[in-house]
Amino acid sequence: MKAILMTQPGLPDLLELREIEEPTITEPSQIKVRLRAAGVNPVDTKIRRNGLFYPNPLPAVLGCDGAGEVVEIGGAVSRFNIGDSVWFCHGGLGGDQGNYAEYTVLDERWAAPIPQSLDFEHAAAAPLVLITAWGALYDRGRLQAGQTVLIHAAAGGVGHVAVQLAKLRDARVLATIGSAEKAELARNWGADTAIDYRQEDFAQRVNELTDGQGADLVIDTVGPDVFRHSIDCTAHFGDLVTLLDPGNISLQEARMRNLRIGFELMLAPMLRNLHEARDHHVEILQQCGEWIDQGVLNIHVSQVLPLEKAAAAHALIETGHTTGKIVLKIS
């Protein structure tokens, strides 16, 4: 089968299209999937740049997000039949094979039926960002109706679904963006106010919009500088959740505000074999699938590239200027 291989850590052009052996079912609970599309996420680019999560030798197939058709099932499979369409977040970290390939094998437990209204490309774009945004907002952030939430990088992969999930919880959404185009997108997804961080101090603006109280919940998807500055606009007794390592910073003001600091790494259950947590991830996909079919949750795909253009997809993500998701189409 065709697959994109990470041959060594480094630049995007180290990704190579090669022919490799098809994976086979080795456990009775596994399904074999003919992949039709694979989502490309920032974590893919970080692994490519820095190395695998596991000590396994290279080359490796990257890509956590996949969508396709079940073509073979193990003897104990009960949830899926041959021909079913599935989406999932599985593999791509250096352990199990990723989804930049024509086929993959995974336990049926980690897959969910694709929403009826989604094509393969939009389905492949969604799992990691949906699970991450849900975890940050609902599980770690404890978002409640009527609260104010600040979502950074609201036009990005996680950000654009986080805005929509927050509105589904009847929250007031403040969103940081970096262009007029992204501001319009954020408002279309439900943001009440879009704050251009290039033009104004976002913390000052949030405090103005909340009469000096700050946001009840802040979701940081950017990194240390944004995390540090977000403390100044998180409400006393509020929640500040980050997807990244905030680095070695002073938490004196966070302590004075009695903030709850939360971390959301949706890959942890896969990395540490936390099966109940992964069951929750599949439940998230099932609920989000219902909302997608109801038309109240949308997945924004900015570009679809052929599998052989994986290096170009990585390069685009690393510019930091993309909106929504980039997807590889697997013919």
Rank of each mutant, 00 (worst) to 15 (best):
E184Y: 10
N207E: 05
E208C: 03
V218R: 12
Q204R: 11
R169H: 13
P127V: 12
A175I: 14
W189R: 15
D201Q: 02
L217I: 02
A162C: 13
K182E: 13
A166T: 10
L185V: 10
H152N: 08
V149I: 15
A194M: 09
T210F: 01
F202Q: 00
R205H: 04
L165V: 09
Y138N: 05
T210E: 03
W189E: 12
D139F: 01
I195C: 01
T210M: 01
Q147L: 02
R169D: 12
R187M: 13
G214N: 09
L137S: 13
A125P: 12
G212V: 05
T176A: 07
D216R: 00
L143M: 07
A215C: 14
V161N: 15
L174E: 03
A171R: 07
A126P: 01
A183D: 14
D170S: 14
Y197K: 09
Q199T: 15
A162E: 13
V218T: 14
G156P: 00
G190P: 12
L150K: 00
A186E: 07
V149H: 00
Q213I: 06
L130H: 08
V161Y: 15
V149N: 07
G159H: 08
I131D: 06
W189I: 12
A162H: 12
Q147W: 04
H122W: 05
D192P: 08
D211N: 10
